[in-house]
Design a protein around this nucleic acid. Sequence first.
DNA 1: TTGTACGCGTTATCAC
DNA 2: GTGATAACGCGTACAA
Lengths: 339, 339
Amino acid sequence: MGSKHLPPARGANQADVARRAGVSTQTVSRVISGQPNVRPETAQRVLAAVEELDYRVNHAASSLASGRSRILGLVVVSTNRYSSAALSVGVEKAAAEHGYTVATAAVADHTSAESVLQAFDRLEQQGAEGIVVGVPIPLESTTMRTRMSRMPTIRSEHAGFGEDAPFAVDQHTVSRLAVEHLLELGHETVWHVTGEESWQEAKQRREGWKDVLRARGIDPPPEIPGDWTPESGYRAGRTIAAIPDVTAVYVGSDEMAFGLLRAFHEAGRQVPEDISVVSVDDISLAAYAAPALTTVRQPFQSLGRAAALRVISRIEGDLEVDIPPTEPTLVVRSSTAAR
Amino acid sequence: MGSKHLPPARGANQADVARRAGVSTQTVSRVISGQPNVRPETAQRVLAAVEELDYRVNHAASSLASGRSRILGLVVVSTNRYSSAALSVGVEKAAAEHGYTVATAAVADHTSAESVLQAFDRLEQQGAEGIVVGVPIPLESTTMRTRMSRMPTIRSEHAGFGEDAPFAVDQHTVSRLAVEHLLELGHETVWHVTGEESWQEAKQRREGWKDVLRARGIDPPPEIPGDWTPESGYRAGRTIAAIPDVTAVYVGSDEMAFGLLRAFHEAGRQVPEDISVVSVDDISLAAYAAPALTTVRQPFQSLGRAAALRVISRIEGDLEVDIPPTEPTLVVRSSTAAR
DNA sequence: TTGTACGCGTTATCAC
DNA sequence: GTGATAACGCGTACAA
């Protein structure tokens, strides 16, 4: 009652703080943003006023005045693939460390150029200053390239454009680790279950797999298509189980490997006695497959971190950031054995 | 050269569009926000100008002027638990449908009141109008409650405060489905591996499990502690395998169930012949465990969606939203059998 | 139906 | 070291 005519209870603003501290708004602004040239005692007074009034900067106003939003856009697939989740976390952490907030836009699993472009739009509209893309993007599309050149944008899975050094996990190395491990165990050739074709990772791994085999004078067997899901792994497993003499398989993801193991089990093919299996990712359940999966670990969180740092450094222009290594490593467990 | 004195290439603004279309900024604003009372031809001219100038509204300015940010905050754990990932996707989708953007703040796994409060701060500072919390929060903390009352906030796992009707997945039902299934199969009692204690879900499930047993006149055996991870499931499995006469176990998550299965396998206890196992979540790999897991599916994505819609409707005040059901369902596979 | 003028809260520029 | 004052770009009474 009676409070009806009070202005809406927007929190305190700089002017309020300034009044209370007996300084100008400018000084308040300086103190808040940690600029120099403020006498310690003045700063104290301001800080006290901030505390008492429970003041917080209005992001919209700050952003409008400075032209900086400190928002990082992130595009991810709307399915909950392990890799996306881990990547997001890495991006978020790195962003937070540098005072950025992450705005997320999810796109459907099978991404079209349009859906990604729409995600870009939403993010750009929210004022994102840079974008980390965690989904496959059709680089052939010129509109896509134009859009990507408009603000710092980086695709997490592979090298950037132009001056950007490659920084993603080297999928060629991933394949090499997997295939050489199997070859060294005495297997004569290695079959490959691929990931979803639209992902660069999938292509690069397939090429890597072929290269390693050919370098040893081995003619690569036909590839078996997969789409990252355990279901597709199961189907691939049934296909492979029907082929005699297969002794070693390199699968594009741990999730598919679970499907593969089931198919082999049903077909009476023992892993690793009859067939060895190497997969990729090292998700938390990999060690709990039956048998425990030998897999090439990908440091997704580091990758997300690296992508975010890369974009932030591009936004800030000069900032030197310490980008963590994103080397894949082979984790040997029980799904592989000597021939 | 020569371009040195041009203003920074900020994109076109309303004034530019207005000039180009030969109207006032007000009219542009009206057209953009789809308000009525604009002659179709005028609107056309404006739209054309927007197109030509590639104009997009400045979110910061719009937000400052209107006091609305259309940003939804989301607090999630920084580990990549399946449930969090799925929840995020649900939130994101629902938000996008209503023109909201999601700002994410990740907090460490073992959440303290401080870390959640800090996440709130970051989100609030970004101008979030409401928050969906996907991590356990200590409700005892009065500061927490105060903060939560300051803006529409909802904890995804359980009922809201005050007038809010409960809308989360009913964990009591989850337990009932799991335990009754086992009891109906003829098991005399059911053991329980709990989730991380700080999560409401874990507590509610444990209570539900006890209630169902007691309702049948069964004295609940001691609970086995877990923390959602497969490792903790493995430890729990070893503990249980050492106890004679255990024939049925209800585990708090699929991930833990994988650990449990491994421990049982190592101990020579056959599932489901010797021991039946029911878990919770129905992650994509649940069907590919050995044996395939009987589990209580939780519609996490729907849950995220529901949480987001709930918050949005509170923000908008009147908006009637269609909140999807979030009923758990029992999925029977091969990890359970009659006694 | 359309335009004018002001306010939103902050930062930047330039004096002092 | 500190303070006026002017943008920043949009929404919104109010006037026309």
